Simulated assay, not measured.
Amino acid sequence: MDLGIFCKGTLDQEVVDHCFASLFTLGKNPDPTYLDWLLKAWGWTLAVAGLGLLIALFLGAVMGTLRTLPPDSAWNRFLVRFSTVWVELFRNIPILVQVFLWYHVIPAFIPLLKGFPSYLLVSIALGFFTSARIAEQVRAGIQSLPSGQKAAATALGLTTYQSYRYVILPMALRIVIPPLTSESMNLIKNSSVAFAVSVPELTLFAMQAQEETSRGVEIYLAVTILYALSAFAVNRVMAHIEKRTRIPGFIVANTEAAAH
């Protein structure tokens, strides 16, 4: 393998002296190296995935909660149906198709979106797609709580909104952190679809750099390592959050109940 490929300029294909030192002048080098390009692409991957995750967490929590509302009013029944349609719609359309819809189709009906940069449209597509999956996890977390939690909140005179805010959601959201970890890691990997609309992220870098250098082994190996590092970092962060927010005795009690 020729790892020196990353120290070559992208314009003249000549090896750049002090390759790693050039990282401190990122964006100012008239002939950036493939290492510069790789790190910029990594930044775009993290930006698209990070924004998509924020959208997914917010919408997923909202839609998952709405799906569990008690059907005691016409408004609640409407919200349950709306959230159900949301989940079934976005989780049953392939993510690549959703990216193309947001990039080519939806702006034709919402002209405001024509001014949005491609990375933002991809983040929205990723966020909506992942929100449907997170919504199901939130719904499952809420429904896994003992019925006594809701009954106790009602007995204390709490409204439905207060019950969810102070009793149900604080418990349910901590329960679903493990599956949320998997979804967060998947979002890092799914961000690779951004290459389809020319967002300069890792996958697009790999394809173009391999064509220019014919060094596919080194290029794709580097990109693979960065994807793995990104997913591992998310895993560690979520594991730390899970540890800090764990409900004392909840896992132990359920484990003992399952054993019996």
Rank of each mutant, 00 (worst) to 15 (best):
A132I: 02
W42C: 14
E212G: 07
R174P: 04
T33L: 07
V48C: 01
S182C: 06
N76W: 02
I142A: 00
S163T: 09
M207P: 07
A151Y: 12
F58I: 14
T255N: 06
P94I: 08
A228K: 03
G216H: 09
V223I: 07
F129R: 14
V217D: 03
I219K: 02
A47R: 14
M207F: 11
V85Q: 11
T213E: 01
Y103K: 03
G127L: 05
C19E: 01
G148W: 09
A222H: 06
H240C: 13
A56S: 14
A56Y: 06
Y161C: 14
M1V: 11
V138Q: 06
T203R: 00
A47K: 11
T181F: 06
A153W: 03
P170C: 09
P248F: 03
A172V: 11
V138F: 13
E212D: 10
V138C: 05
V87C: 10
V16G: 02
A61N: 13
F78N: 15
H104V: 12
V217F: 05
S184D: 10
V138L: 04
I175E: 13
N29C: 04
F195H: 04
T245P: 03
S182K: 09
S131N: 08
Y34A: 02
R133Y: 15
P200W: 00
N29L: 05
L145M: 07
A253S: 14
A152H: 03
Q162M: 09
S182W: 11
S22R: 10
L69P: 02
L66D: 06
I247V: 06
P111K: 00
G43I: 13
I241R: 13
L202W: 11
F90H: 02
A125P: 01
L169R: 07
S83V: 09
L180P: 00
G9C: 12
L38K: 10
G64W: 10
E212M: 10
R236D: 13
T45R: 02
E88F: 03
A61F: 14
V97P: 08
C7A: 12
E242L: 03
P107R: 12
M171C: 09
Y103F: 12
L204F: 03
G50P: 00
S123E: 01
T10F: 01
G27W: 07
F109M: 10
W75I: 15
Q162W: 09
S182D: 13
R133V: 14
L39P: 04
N190P: 09
S118N: 08
V193W: 06
T130Q: 14
V15R: 15
I95R: 12
V62M: 12
A258G: 04
S230D: 01
K189L: 08
A155R: 12
S192Y: 01
F129V: 11
D72P: 06
T130C: 04
Y166A: 02
V176K: 01
L126N: 00
K28T: 00
L79H: 03
D2W: 04
I134F: 15
R81H: 13
L158P: 04
Q210K: 12
I177L: 13
E211G: 11
Q210L: 11
E183K: 14
P94L: 07
N92Q: 15
P70I: 09
T160H: 05
Q137W: 09
G157P: 09
L120P: 04
W86A: 00
L69N: 01
F100Y: 15
